[in-house]
């Protein structure tokens, strides 16, 4: 059972976020592992742990590899993933990758998954539901399309069941079933492994890093791959491959000072009055 988790390095939502030269500011110290990718890491770890507990995997079998496409600061995200217990961390980096759009990102991540697949079969790719900087929620779908794999998106519940003829050493023969609640629809979908899975923040509660893992994460090696290592056509990623281009980015004007009323028995009337006065009813 070998699982690849894709994880993004994003500006912390608790800090002042912004743009510089039409690019998102990703200064070190203010970036983190996309919080929603912690749910992806958690889902992957639990699937491997469950397979071990069931005896379908040996106690030392199974691997969770995290891949990120980011500049060197992105190591922050990988270190955090190590603290949670992932086995391997890979950063795909190159100046030419800057400015990638959704398709470029998906193409790069797909190429990394393929390269990992050349070493040994990859049974599952797990992603978060959205990157908290752009909130696109489309990379998982595109990753599935690039890899030509069944894609099960936005799971709030994940079940993995072996088929009769499954080979215990790999994921083949296993069937993934998810429950998702999107918009006003509840669906159950299933598909055979290998597959792409995205999980929501309600799928699980990410674990807290253990002391031993925190210590070990400091010295763990991060593998850095270039687009050339992936055999990637430079024309598909970065600004060269992007089908959209940011023309401008400007901070919104600050909201005017709010009008604050302390309720002394007339607070509700004041609220109604504000709405009516401003033609909002």
């Amino acid at each position: 059972m070998r699982i690849v988790v894709t994880a993004k390095y994003v500006p912390d939502i608790n800090t002042e976020r912004g743009f510089r030269d039409r690019r998102v500011v990703r200064d070190a110290g203010e970036g983190t592992l996309n919080e929603l990718d912690e749910n992806a890491v958690e889902a992957a770890l639990r699937l491997v742990e469950a397979e071990r507990e069931s005896g379908r995997l040996g106690p030392d079998d199974g691997e969770v590899v995290v891949v990120t496409m980011a500049g060197p600061d992105g190591d922050v995200a990988l270190r955090k993933a190590f603290q949670l217990g992932v086995d391997r961390g890979i950063r795909v980096s190159d100046d030419t990758l800057a400015g990638s759009d959704y398709f470029g990102t998906a193409a790069v991540l797909a190429a990394a998954v393929r390269k990992l697949g050349e070493e040994a079969p990859v049974d599952l790719v797990v992603t978060g539901m959205a990157a908290l900087d752009g909130l696109g929620s489309v990379v998982p779908t595109l990753l599935g399309a690039e890899l030509g794999l069944p894609t099960l998106n936005l799971a709030k519940k994940v079940e993995l069941a072996p088929a009769e003829d499954s080979d215990p050493s790999t994921g083949s023969g296993r069937v993934l079933t998810i429950t998702r609640e999107i918009d006003d629809v509840t669906e159950r979908l299933s598909g055979p492994l290998p597959a792409v899975l995205s999980v929501t923040d309600t799928a699980n509660q990410p674990r807290f890093p253990g002391f031993k893992l925190i210590m070990a994460a400091r010295s763990k090696e991060i593998e850095v791959w270039s687009p050339a290592d992936l055999g990637l056509d430079p024309a598909v990623a970065g600004t060269a491959g992007a089908r959209t281009e940011t023309l401008s980015a400007a901070p919104r004007p600050e909201r005017a000072e709010p009008e604050i009323v302390t309720d002394k028995g007339e607070g509700g009337v004041a609220l109604a009055d504000f709405l009516i006065r401003n033609d909002l009813v």
């Binding site: 909201r255 709010p258 604050i260 302390t262 309720d263 509700g268 004041a270 609220l271 109604a272």
Partner: peptide
């Protein structure tokens, strides 16, 4: 910090009064 108008108070008092007034 991000609002245009606010009432500091108990919502169980403020909301029904606002609803009735509207």
């Amino acid at each position: 910090e991000i609002c245009d108008f606010a009432v500091v108070g108990q919502l169980a008092d403020v909301l029904p009064q606002a609803a009735a007034e509207i």
